[in-house]
Design a protein around this nucleic acid. Structure first.
Lengths: 210, 210, 210, 210
DNA sequence: TATGAATGAGCATTCATTCAT
DNA sequence: GATGAATGAATGCTCATTCAT
């Protein structure tokens, strides 16, 4: 009857992962604590012991997402920048960064789903993740613009275009049940904005997909 | 106490509009029959008299959306095609069609919100609008491709790119509370795919916004 | 399965009465909507249809109590006052009023229980009936003082004493399962404050218990 | 992380005190083990280690109350009685005893609150403290009657009156947030029953408030 | 055409208690 | 001695739906 006492850190992580998966399917509002608890093999009371409330669970997921995303992206960029010594990022770095984003989505489609679904649900000002995604859009646009500086006429505008392409293609890909080659489509699309991209694609591929 | 006996067709239309607005805010699952009924000035029982169930209400909205969209787009294109006599659409027609889509979104942001929110919520295979948006994506991509034939190397791929740009920019625009010039951003973005677009923009503007 | 459609006003009244009874037993916090609903022969949802929330139900009870109490007391006094033409109330009126309060408690012990239990539960500042009983004490003390003016040295102090005696005896009576003669005890007690009371008791009795 | 190992007797005492305080605020049913544990700086499991269950905790509090009350009252009386050698208590002893009760309530309002709240909550026959307060009322009335013997016509009846006055005034005092002079009000009230009280009040005051 | 009463299922959350550690 | 994880039952409330009127 009683659970065989799982390591609480493992449990917590498991809950976060299952919740991410379920939110990706049904959104935050469509998620029920009961469902989630059952998937994790405990009762709703047991689950709420970890996070206090459904909303705090969401906050915990978003914080973790923030942490791991920041870790990945910044690690890549900081190194690249330090190496070059130049004010702007190298062409290969820029391209690699964008492609890495897509590659990660392909590798972890449940995370992509989570972001895609939650992001739109959170257009509602009352949504607990509303301001999170407001800030996130601003931050991402800023980082993209910085990345694009020196490579396009208007970095801010190009940042919007890159982000729009990423989000738009992601959504098509998810709706089509991932049955087209997202990375290939993105490569072609990014070449619209960075014409030199096509010529250095081979190298990038290898890096991005690792 | 009793309602002053509104014309049932007017009532129906009002319900559809309020529902569209509310779904745009909170999604279909977030919509409550009670809320909607109150906004329409009748009781939940009274509302369901018109549509039978919440799901049938959604179906009715989607059908109406289908009808009015098809009417607008096809009207434009059929005429344009008939006039030219050519196998492909004229540059100005293509551009005008795309811009008209954006212009309509700007003119009726509640419809844009409805589509944006519902479309993502419907990524879930269980969602009553799932197959609707599956078909819609296919249809739109097909129409875009046809429209782009003769103007780009790969019409199918370019169609994806255009649709991605539209959806992506729309989402950014809604999240930013409509505080940037969506049409200007789109003009620049479409010029990435159709380089000749920039030169004929002035004319298009006037037409698209009417 | 479905209820045989009781008259909604009757239903409402029935709910208020059952709730009064249950609160008298277990307090407001001890009252469960489920329990109350079952006693009324409907589901909790059905019950909340009438009052919206447990707290609003309490408010409705208190409002009704207020109304019917004010009606009874003021009717008696206004008439008595009007008749006498004197600035102060007649001895018999004063006594009759106090005894009538006790007589009503004896006739409707469930109301007495309700007030006794809720009043103490509401000592908590967070309690939804807290301010109700604050105001009630003030109002009752004021009315008692007015009633006692001309009959005692310090009407305000005597009002406190009368109220304390009433509440204190009530509580003992309820705890003793109503197994002593509350009215007799009160008659003796009120005579401590109004020494002339004993001599006119016979008359009062007859009136108060009607 | 782990508690710095407080002396278990101190701990126990602290729990009893905090519980008394919380029950005075919200009643026994309104008390939650979680709340109480947090106030005591340990977890719910840790708290229940001491008392086994919420109800046993209540029993422990009541037993302790019994003990310390009995100790105080009886000490006073026994001595007074022994000294006088008379069958009845001296006037000053009687008055001192009553006033001492009030003085103790003023000095420890949290105990007064506890009794006031719990006593009424326990009117419910299902309440774990129901029989405790039944017996207590009987015992107190008996002791009061013994105390009043020789000073009033009907000691039993006078005992009721004194107890009613004490409880009634206490309740008013708590509701008024302790913003009137309870002892002064009680002095006047007790003089209704013991007319000679007023003349020996000065002496009593000094004793009672120490 | 609609209202208004009612249901039944579900929801997030709370809580006393248990127990392995 | 005490923690921390977990349960199971309950709680107030919401919601789509039904249906007599």
């Amino acid at each position: 009857m009683r659970q065989p006492r799982t390591d609480p850190n493992v449990r917590r992580q498991q809950i976060l992962e299952e919740a991410t998966w379920l939110i990706g399917l049904q959104g935050y509002n469509g998620l029920t604590v009961q469902d989630l608890a059952k998937r994790c093999g405990l009762t709703n009371g047991g689950l709420l012991y970890y996070f206090g409330s459904k909303e705090q669970l969401l906050v915990a997921i978003l914080e973790e997402r923030d942490r791991s995303e920041a870790a990945i992206i910044h690690a890549d960029l900081e190194i690249a920048h330090a190496v070059s010594g130049n004010a702007n990022y190298a062409e290969s770095t820029v391209l690699k960064t964008f492609c890495a984003i897509i590659a990660r989505s392909i590798a972890q489609p449940e995370l992509l789903r989570f972001h895609t679904v939650l992001q739109t649900e959170a257009l509602n000002r009352q949504h607990p993740a509303h301001s999170f995604f407001l800030k996130r859009d601003a931050k991402v646009l800023g980082e993209f613009a910085k990345l694009l500086t020196g490579h396009v006429d208007s970095p801010a505008r190009a940042a919007r275009q890159v982000l729009a392409l990423i989000n738009g293609l992601n959504q098509q890909w998810l709706r089509a049940d991932m049955e087209f080659d997202l990375l290939a489509e993105f490569d072609e699309a990014i070449a619209l904005i960075l014409p030199w991209a096509r010529s250095i694609m081979q190298t990038t591929y290898a890096v991005a997909t690792n």
